[in-house]
Every structure is written in structure tokens, then in C-alpha cells.
């Protein structure tokens, strides 16, 4: 892999830090007029998900990481493992249930998603920003309620629970923003 100097590092680049693949979030150039130049770099460890900030002496180098995002389809899960297939090459990948983190609550069979591969092995899966899912369980709404107000919890077909307005009923299909885990709107069938 390529090696980058701290001044070439940009947001979104994938690099190896402490032997873990990380994605750069921000790189700030800090330099006293007559002193040592630094790069204050903020990054997310792609294995642990932790966001960290650390300072490098300007001009130091950081190796790139073989990390790529590929579009894929979630096929099925066999109880302990989740199976995916990439859209372009039809290659299949398997991920351990415990490595799926947040994404699994939004995925149903045939859902589109993004697989992050590190050295050819799936590291993470990201659900689409918006998903359309059916409500399988929620309390009956109160008549006359318009949107706004407190809302109520609703369980979706994938097992996720989101807050929905009181007028939304069991069996309805809704659009959810997965990044914040919030109800967006009802969707007509």
C-alpha cells in the first residue's frame, strides 16, 4: 500500500494506525510561526469504531490501509453468521453476528448495503441511509393526534425499535433514517 505523509492525509482516507485500519475524519495543520509544525488528526478505528485524536510531527508518514467499500446485498443469516453478495462480482462474504454492530437491526433479506473490506475480509457493514420497513408491533394510536408530540415505540420487521407518531399503526410501512434511527414518514404500499 501507499504511504502518505501527514500533509497528504485527507478526510475519508483509510490508513493503518497501531496496526488497525482507520478512516480519517479530520486533519488540522497546527504550526507556531517559528516553531515545530504538527498535524492534529482525528480518525475512527474501523475495528473498534472508536473516534480518536492524535498529533503527528508534520512530515511523518502513515501507511495506507487496503480498505474498500463495495455495494452488496444481504442474503440471509443462518443463526450465527450473516451472508452477503457483492453487486458487481457476485462474490459472497460471511460475517460473524457480533461484528455486525448497528447495521443488523436495519437489514432484511435482499437489502442493499455497503460492505467494508479490509485485506479482502469484511470489516463492517453499513445499512443504506434510508430503509423502508414494516411495523410489526405498536400500541394503538390516540384518535385526533396529528404529527408532533411524544410519539410511541414501534417494533419493525427487522427487530429495530423506533419512535413513531401516535397516528402510525401496526402493519403500516415506514421510512427510517438509519444514521439517527428516526422515523421519517409513512410509505404507501
Amino acid at each position: 500500500m501507499a504511504v502518505y505523509t501527514t500533509n497528504e492525509i485527507r478526510g475519508g482516507m483509510k490508513v493503518m494506525i497501531d496496526n488497525d485500519p482507520c478512516v480519517i475524519l479530520d486533519n488540522e495543520f497546527v504550526k507556531p510561526g517559528k516553531g515545530q509544525a504538527f498535524n492534529r488528526i482525528k480518525y475512527r478505528n474501523l475495528k473498534s469504531g472508536r473516534v480518536v485524536e492524535r498529533t503527528w510531527k508534520s512530515g511523518d508518514s502513515i501507511p495506507g490501509a487496503d480498505v474498500v467499500d463495495v455495494e452488496a446485498q444481504y442474503l440471509y443469516n443462518d443463526g450465527s453468521h450473516w451472508h452477503f453478495m457483492t453487486n458487481e462480482t457476485f462474490e459472497q462474504y460471511v460475517m460473524d453476528d457480533k461484528d455486525l454492530a448497528d447495521a443488523k437491526q436495519w437489514l432484511k433479506e435482499q437489502s442493499e448495503c455497503v460492505l467494508t473490506l479490509f485485506n479482502g475480509t469484511p470489516l463492517a457493514v453499513t445499512a443504506p441511509n434510508f430503509v423502508i420497513l414494516k411495523i410489526v408491533e405498536t400500541d394503538p394510536g390516540v384518535r385526533g393526534d396529528t404529527s408532533g408530540g411524544g410519539g410511541k415505540p414501534a417494533k419493525l420487521e427487522t427487530g429495530a425499535v423506533v419512535r413513531v407518531p401516535l397516528f402510525v399503526q401496526e402493519g403500516e410501512i415506514i421510512k427510517v433514517d438509519t444514521r439517527i434511527g428516526e422515523y421519517v414518514s409513512r410509505v404507501k404500499e
Binding site: P32, F38, W56
Partner: peptide, 16 residues
Amino acid sequence: IPVSGTLPNRDAWLDL
């Protein structure tokens, strides 16, 4: 203040 590696001298640490 986490630093990667080391800095070249005393003045660089003061700058940090």
C-alpha cells in the same frame, strides 16, 4: 495530548 512517535527536541515539546 497523544503524540505519535517522538518529537525532535525540547523546543518541539514546548511548542506542543
